[in-house]
Nucleic acid binder design. Structure first.
Lengths: 195, 195
DNA sequence: GTCTATACTTTGATAGAC
DNA sequence: GTCTATCAAAGTATAGAC
C-alpha cells in the first residue's frame, strides 16, 4: 500500500495536520510525495477538494483506531480515559507540539467555507462520538448520559489540544484529563447507585 | 475610530474568524474594507503578518471583555458560567454556526508554522485564563485549583466550538456547559468544606 | 499511469505619480 | 496618505506525448 495514491493521502494528512487546508498547496503535496500533477489528477479527478475529503476520512479513522487501541488495552474505563489524555500529552511533547488532532484545523477552516468538507469532518467527529459512547455504555452508563459524556470528553480533548499547541505546554491536557476522569467517575458511581 | 486602520482590523477579524489566516487574502481584506494597498502597507509596514498580530490581539481582548461582561452580570459564579456557555450556543445558532471562537482557527494554523503569531495567540489565551482564574479565586477557590479549573473551562468551550461548528448543532455546547457547572460546583463545595 | 510543459488566476508586495 | 499600475511568485488545473 505504498503506491502513489497512498503516498499522496499520507503526505497530505501530515501537511493538513500541521498547516491546515488553505496553507497546503498542491505543489507542496506533490513535492513531498514525489508525485506528478498527472498522478494526483488521475487518482483524484476532483482535485484538491476530493483529495482533502479522502484525507479527512483517512485521518479520522486512523486516529479513532489509535484512541480505541489505547482505551481498550486499559484494565478499566477510568484508566483507559486517563491513558488517552496522557498519551495525547506525551505525543505533543515528543513532537514539539506539532502532532495534535489530525483534523481540527481543517474542520475549523471548512466549517463556514466548504459545505461538502464540513460534512466530512462532521462524519468523522460523529464516528468518534459513537465509539466513545459505545464504550461508556458497555461500562454501565445509560445511552443518553454516555453520549453526553462523550461529547464532553471529545470537547475537552480538542480544546486542550488548542491550548497546548498555542502555549507549547501540556498543562491544559493534564487538567483536561483530570476533569475527564472526574466526570466519568461521577457518572459511574451514580450508575451503580441507580441502575 | 472608524478610520481606515480600524476598518482593516475589524474586517480582518471577521474574515479570520470565518476562514482562518491562510484562506484570507489581502485583496479580500482591502475589498471588504474599501481600502487600498497603499493604506494597508502604510498602517502595517510588516504586511499581512503585522496586521494578523494586531487582529489576533484585538479579537482576543474583545472576546475576553464579552465573556467578562456576561460572567460578571450574573448573580453568582455558577450562573455566570452557565450563561457564558448558553450565550455561546445562542450565538452559534443565531449566526448559522459562523461565529464561534475568534482566534481558534488562526491559532491552530500558526501553532507550528509561524512562531511570532503563535506567541500572540498564546498571550491571548493566557489573558483569558488569568481572567477566569481571578474570578474563581474571588469565589473562594484556591489559586492552583482555580487555574486548573479555568484551563478546563476554556478547553471545554473551545472544544465544543469545534464540534458544534462541524456538526451544525449546539448539542456539544450544552453538554460542555453542564460539565463546566458540575466541575466548578464540586470545587466550590470542597472549598467551603475545606477552606 | 506517468512525463513535460503550460494556461490561467490569485497571491503578497512595491513603484512612482499625485 | 492615496491613486493606478505592475511585479515575481505561487496557486489550481489541464494538454498532449509517451
Amino acid at each position: 500500500m505504498n503506491d502513489t495514491r497512498n503516498r499522496l493521502v499520507n503526505v497530505t494528512a501530515v501537511l493538513f495536520q500541521r498547516q491546515g487546508l488553505a496553507a497546503t498547496g498542491i505543489k507542496q503535496i506533490l513535492s513531498d510525495s514525489n508525485a506528478q500533477f498527472s498522478s494526483l489528477y488521475h487518482h483524484f479527478p476532483g482535485g484538491k477538494e476530493q483529495l482533502a475529503a479522502e484525507v479527512i476520512r483517512a485521518s479520522g479513522i486512523r486516529y479513532q483506531e489509535l484512541v480505541e487501541a489505547v482505551w481498550d488495552s486499559a484494565p478499566d474505563v477510568l484508566t483507559g480515559i486517563t491513558q488517552v489524555f496522557e498519551g495525547a500529552a506525551e505525543t505533543l511533547e515528543a513532537t514539539d507540539f506539532a502532532v495534535a488532532c489530525p483534523i481540527a484545523t481543517v474542520a475549523l477552516e471548512v466549517a463556514t467555507t466548504n459545505e461538502e468538507l464540513r460534512v466530512v469532518t462532521a462524519e468523522v467527529f460523529s464516528s468518534w462520538i459513537s465509539s466513545g459512547t459505545d464504550r461508556l455504555v458497555a461500562a454501565g452508563i445509560d445511552l443518553t448520559r454516555a453520549r453526553s459524556l462523550t461529547l464532553i470528553l471529545v470537547a475537552l480533548l480538542e480544546g486542550a489540544f488548542i491550548l497546548c499547541q498555542a502555549a507549547k505546554s501540556t498543562e491544559s491536557m493534564i487538567a483536561a484529563g483530570s476533569a475527564a476522569v472526574a466526570i466519568v467517575s461521577d457518572a459511574l458511581e451514580s450508575s451503580v447507585a441507580d441502575p
